[in-house]
């Protein structure tokens, strides 16, 4: 299903999060919204989802005006940065939630819900973990439960907010490739937000570079790399190409730690 936003503006008090943004995403695309923090990318994603309202303009889903349709009727799969799993529910219950809350006449039978959940658990490679609770899972596993939960309602589009932002570097690289293959298999129109250039360029079929509440450039990774449209895009992609700049701000992962020990340096805390 295609997504189109027209002339979207959003103010939070005196702060402009989005300033007249237009964007069209075709059916089956995997698009990345890339930009520094505060560039408005997450707000745009939340407006597409219906989690946030827009001050002006329209959101079209599959060519139909969805601006005033509440999120619970939009059928969008939303994956939150910090997973937002229901902490008191098992993995199984989490994934089944979207089916269980449907009105009785639209709700699938218990057996078909069970089948659907097991199918999704297989899809995200968590078979056999249905009885666990979110607290008993690793970050990467939680993120995949969140994805399975979003896919359970057979969403028309999949929206992911910094899907790998809270994970450590190696898991992030693994999941990146996995998300790309999942998209190739399901072909669901997907949009993900990231501030990591490497992630955007590696996973997305098209990249939307954002800065200061506006879109700087839209293009395939190759186009953006070879012909940056503005000095900002050139600078932003130029920063030593990738997640390293971000990672250096994070506490050392296990790999850094091991290296630190090998060279005899005291591990940073």
């Amino acid at each position: 299903m295609s997504i189109e936003v027209q002339n979207i503006t959003r103010q939070f008090g005196a702060y402009t999060a989005l300033d007249g943004v237009d964007l069209k995403i075709e059916t089956g695309e995997l698009v990345s919204l890339l930009g520094p923090s505060g560039s408005g990318k997450t707000t745009l994603l939340r407006i597409i989802a219906g989690l946030e309202r827009t001050d002006t303009g329209r959101v079209l889903l599959h060519g139909e005006d969805a601006t005033d349709i509440p999120i619970r009727e939009r059928r969008v799969g939303f994956v939150f940065q910090h997973y937002a799993l229901f902490r008191h529910m098992s993995v199984f219950k989490n994934i089944a939630f979207g089916l269980n809350v449907r009105p009785r006449r639209e709700r699938p039978s218990k057996a078909s819900i069970r089948n659907r959940v097991h199918e999704l658990l297989r899809l995200v490679q968590l078979d056999g973990l249905g009885d666990r609770y979110p607290a008993q899972l690793s970050g990467g596993q939680r993120q995949r439960v969140a994805l399975a939960r979003a896919l359970a309602i057979e969403p028309r589009v999949l929206l992911l907010d910094e899907p790998f932002g809270a994970l450590d570097a190696r898991v992030r690289r693994d999941l990146r490739g996995w998300l790309k293959r999942l998209h190739e298999e399901l072909h669901i129109t997907s949009v993900f937000v990231t501030h990591d250039q490497e992630e955007a360029l590696e996973v997305a079929s098209r990249v939307v570079v954002m800065n200061h509440a506006r879109i700087e450039q839209i293009g395939t990774p190759a186009e953006i790399l070879s012909r940056p449209a503005t000095p900002f895009v050139r600078d932003f992609l130029g920063q030593d190409r990738g997640g390293e700049s971000v990672e250096s701000l994070r506490p050392p992962g296990r790999a850094d730690f091991a290296l630190g020990l090998l060279t005899g340096a005291a591990p940073r805390s």
Binding site: A84, F97, G98, V101, A150
Partner: peptide, 21 residues
């Protein structure tokens, strides 16, 4: 309110969100 937002995005109404989440 992340979990509540997730519940609503999965189609739950206000009452279901309060009661189940």
């Amino acid at each position: 309110s992340d979990e509540e937002q997730a519940a609503v995005s999965l189609g739950a109404n206000g009452w279901q969100t309060l009661w189940h989440v």
